[in-house]
């Protein structure tokens, strides 16, 4: 019993230590506004983090959008409420699925790649030699990836939502024959710019910070061995996914919860 308590204490302390180190890393990497020459590095990261994730985002978005539309349509058609397909689809996507699914896919596609890349650089002493050359790897390697991820994810979420809604239109309107006018006007009446789109995008920005931060830190802090890198990559995906879902719950509670 005492040993268990001691173990819990030790785990908590090392967890806190990890959080502390991650925070120091974050502050050191990002406290300065990037110089114009650093922007080239950020652009390169937006490319490898964002542009290269587009394919999977667009494909999944289309699939998810059309499946939701199909489900809603078959259920709602029984009450003659086909017009509500657009409303349901848009609200589900903008508020929840868009930000969450994009973040989960992003963690699997880009997060793991970031961790593996930085971990490899550490393992092969590239970070170390960079330090010895008088170049701070936090500025050169870590910061551009942080910014790249934070810029990319909200853009990917916007694309996800758009493509998923398009997928819904294809299924509900073009295929199943729901009325196009009812679909759009129902959506436009119910969807609020700030309440649905805006708050969804806030979620996306929060997820972007969480996922890229975890990915970069896990790479930067990994044990410099092949095994350590593998572990770090797995941890990035697992931790990101858990935290995305947890943050989603609390953000939903915070932004949509009505406690009256």
């Amino acid at each position: 019993m005492e040993r268990m308590l001691r173990q819990v204490g030790a785990d908590t302390l090392s967890w806190l230590q990890g959080l502390g180190r991650a925070t120091v890393m974050w502050i050191r990497a990002a406290y300065r506004v990037p110089k114009p020459s650093d922007w080239m590095l950020v652009i390169r990261q937006v490319y490898s983090i964002g542009v290269l994730s587009m394919a999977i985002i667009v494909l999944s978005a289309f699939a998810i959008g059309s499946v939701i539309a199909l489900q809603f349509y078959t259920q709602l058609a029984r009450f003659g409420a086909e017009d509500a397909v657009g409303v349901g689809l848009a609200l589900v996507l903008l508020r929840e699925l868009g930000p969450v699914v994009t973040a989960l896919l992003f963690a699997g596609r880009a997060g793991s790649a970031i961790t593996a890349e930085i971990g490899l650089m550490k393992t092969t002493e590239q970070l170390s030699i960079m330090e010895m050359m008088g170049v701070d790897p936090l500025r050169r390697i870590v910061a551009p990836r942080l910014w790249g991820g934070i810029i990319s994810m909200p853009l990917l979420t916007l694309m996800f939502n758009t493509v998923a809604i398009y997928g819904g239109v294809v299924v509900a309107v073009h295929w199943l024959g729901a009325d196009s006018g009812g679909f759009w006007s129902g959506m436009q009446n119910a969807v609020e710019l700030w309440d649905d789109l805006g708050k969804g995008m806030i979620k996306s920005v929060v997820f972007a910070v969480v996922v890229t931060w975890i990915a970069v830190y896990q790479g930067y802090d990994c044990e410099p061995t092949a095994e350590g890198m593998g572990l770090a990559t797995t941890r990035t995906v697992v931790m990101s996914s858990v935290l995305i879902l947890a943050f989603d719950f609390f953000l939903t509670l915070l932004m949509y919860g009505d406690f009256r």
């Binding site: 937006v46 758009t162 959506m187």
Partner: peptide, 19 residues
Amino acid sequence: AFVLAGMLAAVFLVVQVSG
């Protein structure tokens, strides 16, 4: 192109979806 696509998506969501 990526950023442009994101902004077009934003415009679509603002104008067409939230109307």
